[in-house]
Nucleic acid binder design. Structure first.
Length: 257
DNA sequence: ATGTCGCTCGAGGAGCGA
């Protein structure tokens, strides 16, 4: 089973890259963020023509999340709390004995801003919901754009980013609160150390200078840990013309689906 | 280092969010 997450930054603009990537990589489950389309405009048929089914929750201009999965699979949507209703940032499905949760955590703008407070509230609501909805025995994959670089090793220049948005103490604490529910950062299970990034700012020639952060994550619960084989960042997609500012993260498992 | 993208509104480019 191959599971991946990618912030596409507009599915309409990124459709050619998405199509090529699905054809080449053949992931079983894909979590997309920042689709930026209302449900009525989601490119459902183009996705179906590639052998995938899509479930999505979008809005105009901003946010929007979607799951793509191989057509043969039959997932059920899991209801999320009304707290998450106003901005389309979360979608969850049940697929056989697995639960997949796709999140697009608020960016937070700058530390101390109203948007920053909203980010912290959103993360706190996520922890509450996870805690009360799932048990220790649940087989969970929680993935998406967390907009948090968990540690200094996930940042190209920790001094520059110290206490800044995506790296502040409270954001990192919120990430740890999620981990403490019983999740493992799949990337770090496989790559104990080493700097690797999933997002590079469009500004400042970020990608060419490798000024990046690792803010997109695939977290797995304990039961899935043993079967995790490989986790890679598809950096090649960030190097294309008209790229998303994020690269996909891809996790391969030896079992399931 | 306020730099680049993608969006909306609405008909050209300003303003917002990331």
């Amino acid at each position: 089973m191959k599971v991946s997450t990618w912030n596409v930054n507009s599915i309409r603009v990124r459709m050619p890259h998405l199509v090529d990537w699905l054809r080449e990589d053949l992931p079983d489950v894909v979590a997309l963020q920042e689709t930026k389309v209302e449900d009525i405009s989601f490119p459902k048929e183009d996705i179906e023509n590639l052998g995938y089914t899509a479930v999505f929750s979008g809005q105009k201009s901003y946010n929007g999340v979607a799951f793509l999965f191989q057509k043969t699979n039959k997932p059920e949507l899991i209801k999320t709390p009304s707290f998450f209703d106003s901005q389309k940032r979360i979608i969850a499905i049940n697929l056989e004995d697995l639960v997949f949760i796709n999140i697009y955590v608020p960016n937070g703008s700058s530390v101390g801003s109203e948007k920053y407070e909203y980010k912290l509230q959103w993360l706190s609501a996520l922890v509450d919901w996870l805690k009360k909805t799932f048990s220790k025995n649940s087989k969970l994959v929680l993935m998406g754009d967390f907009n948090i670089a968990p540690n200094d090793i996930d940042v190209h220049d920790p001094e520059v980013w110290k206490d800044k948005i995506l790296c502040s103490i409270l954001e990192r604490q919120a990430f740890k609160d999620i981990i403490d529910l019983g999740f493992y950062d799949a990337y770090r299970l496989v790559h104990k150390d080493g700097r690797a990034f999933t997002w590079w700012d469009y500004r400042l020639n970020g990608f060419r200078r490798n000024f990046g952060l690792r803010i997109d994550h695939i977290l797995v619960s304990d039961q899935l840990r043993e079967s995790l084989v490989k986790v890679e960042i598809a950096k090649n997609l960030r190097a294309l013309d008209r790229p998303s500012d994020h690269a996909p993260v891809v996790a391969s498992f030896s079992t399931y689906l």
